[in-house]
Amino acid sequence: MIKAKPKPIPEIQNYIESFDKILIAGCGGCVSVCLAGGQKEVNILKTELELAFSKTNTKKEIAGYTVERQCNSGLIEELDAIVTHYDCIISIACGAGIQHLAERYPAIPVLPGVNTIAIGVDLDIGLYEERCRACGECVLAYTAGICPVTRCAKGIFNGPCGGTNGENCEVSDAIDCAWLLIYNRLKEQNRLEDILKIQPPMEWKNTIKRTIVQKGYENRYIEK
């Protein structure tokens, strides 16, 4: 799922300074799972901000409310009646959720409370690692299930590049060379011929906003 990390309190404090009534909007979806934006984190952020402001004797009215998922307009509806009481909203959902709130309440500043980082896996409680960059053109079939877009610093489709020292990436010795991993696994699976197939370059569709029309819904959303 989507992984996010709370922003440092001073940063948040800085951009809410001019507002008196602040609503922290949590999300029960992915950010709840990665312990960054659920109801508990709403309460934590609320307490942290209150403490931070009490140090400077600033009076702020801070409240929290968590909805099921901020990426669904039906599920943020319950905020409609609440947001009118506040000067600004700190959303601690992923980037999509924050923008969705901002679109729905254009009159109220919506500010991010987390940094959305990656689509990743849970290694353990509170420990996550990136796996996917949502490029929109999955090539995992011939890279032995190792993503060259996410794990190769250059994101090259036909690797490795000349920068590898045989084990690591030239960016850092702490980073494995993704193409070495791909080579090793393909070898184990006896599919080494896959690495020799030249793959066409990617169109990098994720540089602009993409719309997804799901199979079976073409008639409803696409012009005939």
Partner: peptide, 9 residues
Amino acid sequence: PPLIPKKEI
């Protein structure tokens, strides 16, 4: 939502 022009898909 408004229909998406076919050429965009």
